[in-house]
Every structure is written in C-alpha cells, then in structure tokens.
Computed example of a mutant assay.
Amino acid sequence: MVCGLGIVIICLISFTYGQTPDDNVNSNMDIKSSLHVRLSSLERRHNEGVQRVNELEKQQQTAQSHIVTLQRQQQIESRRIYDLEKRQQTNQRRIFLLKIQRKMDQDRILNLEKQRTYDQRRISDLEMQLQSSQRIPDLEKQQQSEQHRTSDLIKVFDPKIKRQSRQRLLSDASDATNYSQHSLMIGIYQHTKNLHSVSNNISSTASVRAATTKRTEDRNPERRNKLINQRQQQESGNEGTVAFHVVLSHWYNQMLDLMEIHFDKVTTNIGGSYSAHTGTFTCTRAGVYVFSWTVHVTTCYAYTELVKNGAVVGYAFSGNSQNSESGGNTVVIQLLQGDTVFVRVGEHPSGTALIGTRGTTTFSGFLLK
C-alpha cells in the first residue's frame, strides 16, 4: 500500500512537470526498486529491533529474577548478621563475666595460698607442741603409781592406828622415837602435796592438748572434715553406712552457665565419699542412693541440675522475678563404684545471685540399699 501511494505521487509530479509516460514509467521503476530496497532494509531493521527487544526483555526478566535472588540473599545475610551481632554481644557479656570470675578466683586462690602457708606454719607449731605433750601417758602412769603408793601409806598410817601408836609411844618410847615418827608424818604430807601438784600438771597438759587439737581442726577444714568423718564412723559403728550433708557458706554473685556449686561446709560425711574441695560425691559403694538439694537465689530465678557422670538426672527451680526464694528436688538413682554426682547451675538470667551464708543452700545424700 505504501508503494502504490508512492507511485501515484511520482506520476502526479511527472505529469505536472510535463514528462512523458515512458520517462515516467522508467522513473517509477527506479523509484519502486529503490523503495523495495529501502523497505527491505526497514523490515530487516524492524525485525532486528524486534529481536533486540525480545532479547532485552529476556535479559530484563533474567535481571529481575537475579535481583529477587539477590534480595533474598540480602535478607538472609542481614538476618545472619543480626544473629552474629547478637551472639557477639552474648559472647562479650560472657567474656566480661568470665573475667570478673577469673579475678575473683585469682583473689581467692591468693587468699587460700596465704591461708595455707599460715596453716602449715601453725600445724608445724602445733605438731611440735603435740610431740612435747606426748609425755602425758608417762605422767599418768607415774600419777597412778604415786596414788597407789599414797593409798598404801595412808592405810599404814590410819588415824586410829596413829593414835594408838602415839599412846603406846608416849607411854613406852623415848622422846627420840616420837621425833622420828613426827618427821615421817611430815614426809608423808610433803609427798602427798607433790602428788597433787603432778595431778594438776597432767590436767593442765591434757587441757592444752585438747585446745590445740580444736584449733588445728578449726584452721584446717580438710582435716576437720576428716576428723568429723572418723568420729562419726566411730560413733555409728557401721562401716557400711554412706551419708553426707553439706552447706554452702559463701555467695555466688556472678553465676555462669553449667557452673558447679561447691558446698564447702561439711556437717556429715559418713564414709568420706563427699569432697568439699571439688563439691563432688564419688560413690565408694554401689547401690541405690537418695540425693536432695536446695538452692536459695535472689533478684531473679535459676534452674539447677543434679549431674551423674556428666548426664543430668534431676532438675530444680528456685526464685522468682521480685524476691529471693529457695527451691530444690529429691532424686533416687542407682550408682556404681566410681560414679560421680554433683549439683550445677542451669538456665538463669544475668544478675541472679546464689545465697550461701544462711544455711539455706544445701546438698545431701545417703545409701538407701
């Protein structure tokens, strides 16, 4: 249609300027051929343009899908960055708490080392005093022998016999004999007085020894716990009994996750299975055991766990969001020789403190069967 319109226009122009029909025909043919060439070129360019548009549309769709994928990846990376930042904050807070705990532990170790040095020096002094007080049995034997001798002398010189002897001596004996008897009685009196002095010395030495033993027990907790254990075993007279009861005597102002609670004050430790140094009960006799623990916390709350050989066998909840409260639990478990049991801190918010100065945080257990 475009070609026909172009030919009509050319013919009109030729007629206007007075050209002949043959010239017009030739001219029209040339124009037509040039128009065909130009139309072909235009159609080719049009097709190329359409193909280019299709390719651009495909590229645009690909780019849009790639943009969507990148946006999703960006969201994932943003979420991951947020999680990492949160974890970093948690780790920084934990590192800060660990540094504080480390400083407290270092101070405590320093104080314990000083106390240990003082206790060792004190123990050496007390051992020397105890060695010097080992003469007590010899003095006691000497006192017994002197007492027997005194009783024999008193029997010999009974007052009635002395009166009768004095009457007979006054009537029959000379003044020299009376003087000898009087000297003998004075000697007996002096000997009895010396015996009383020896007895008083023995009593004072025994008192010093008892006080020295008590001070030694107070200065050395491990030795005190051992002596308590020995006394309880001697009093009970039952070698198969295993039982303990311990109390926490200090605060934990900064608690850490999975922190083992060291109950350091031992009131009962029959069998010697509990260690106040590690806070761990080690089974020395296989059987069924009953364990109970109570934990007193303040400010917030805390979960505690009873752990057997690294595995949790019991849980307890203590505290609330406002006041201090205590909580605990009782567990019956089977133990083999060498198994270990202890109490540790579980889930808790920051700022929770463990109270240990009122005797409300305890740990106990005994062999049931």
Score class of each variant (00 low, 15 high):
Thr267Leu: 12
Gly240Val: 15
Ala286Lys: 11
His245Tyr: 15
His277Cys: 11
Thr282Leu: 09
His250Trp: 09
Val288Asn: 05
Asn238Asp: 15
Leu256Gly: 02
Ser273Pro: 01
Leu248Cys: 08
Val247Leu: 13
Val266Tyr: 04
Ala276Glu: 02
Ser273Met: 04
Met255Ala: 02
Asn269Gly: 02
Leu258Pro: 01
Val247Ile: 15
Asp264Glu: 09
Phe281Pro: 03
Arg285Lys: 13
Ser275Met: 10
Gln232Ala: 14
Gln233Pro: 09
Gly271Val: 01
Tyr274Glu: 01
Gln234Arg: 12
Glu260Met: 13
Thr267Phe: 06
Met255Val: 02
Gly271Pro: 00
Ser249Trp: 08
His250Phe: 15
Gln254Ala: 07
His277Asn: 14
Tyr274Leu: 08
Asn253His: 00
Asp257Lys: 14
Met255Ser: 00
Asp257Pro: 10
Trp251Cys: 07
Asn238Trp: 08
Ile270Met: 15
Ser275Thr: 09
Arg231Ile: 11
Thr241Gln: 14
Phe281His: 08
Phe244Lys: 14
His262Trp: 05
Gln254Val: 10
Ile261Asn: 00
Ala276Met: 10
Gly272Ala: 07
Thr268Pro: 05
His245Val: 10
Met259Asn: 03
Asp257Gln: 14
Phe263Arg: 15
Thr241Met: 14
Val288Tyr: 03
Gly271Ser: 02
Arg285Pro: 01
Gly271Asp: 01
Val242Glu: 04
Tyr252Asp: 03
Met255Trp: 00
Asn253Leu: 01
Gln234Glu: 10
Arg231Tyr: 07
Gln234Lys: 12
Gln233Asp: 14
Met255Cys: 02
Ser273Glu: 02
Leu258Gln: 15
Lys265Gly: 04
Lys265Met: 12
Phe263Glu: 11
Gly287Leu: 04
Val246Leu: 03
Gln254Leu: 07
Arg231Leu: 10
Val247Asn: 11
Thr280Tyr: 09
Thr282Lys: 13
Ile270Pro: 04
Thr282Trp: 03
Gln232Gly: 06
Arg285Glu: 04
Gly272Val: 10
Thr267Gly: 07
Tyr252Cys: 06
Ile270Tyr: 03
Glu235His: 05
Thr267Pro: 02
Thr268Tyr: 09
Glu260Asp: 10
Met259Phe: 00
Asn253Thr: 01
Asp264Trp: 09
Val246Phe: 01
Asp264Ile: 13
Ile261Ser: 00
Gly240Leu: 15
Gly237Val: 12
Phe281Glu: 02
Val288Phe: 03
Gly279Phe: 03
Thr268Lys: 15
Asn238Arg: 13
Lys265Trp: 06
Val242Leu: 09
Cys283Ser: 08
His262Ser: 09
Leu256Ile: 01
Val247Asp: 07
Ala243His: 00
Val246Glu: 04
Met259Ser: 02
Asn269Arg: 11
Leu258Trp: 06
Asp264Tyr: 08
Glu239Tyr: 08
Asn238Tyr: 08
Glu235Asp: 12
Gln234Met: 12
Thr284Ser: 13
His250Asp: 12
Leu258Phe: 11
Ala243Tyr: 01
Ser275Arg: 11
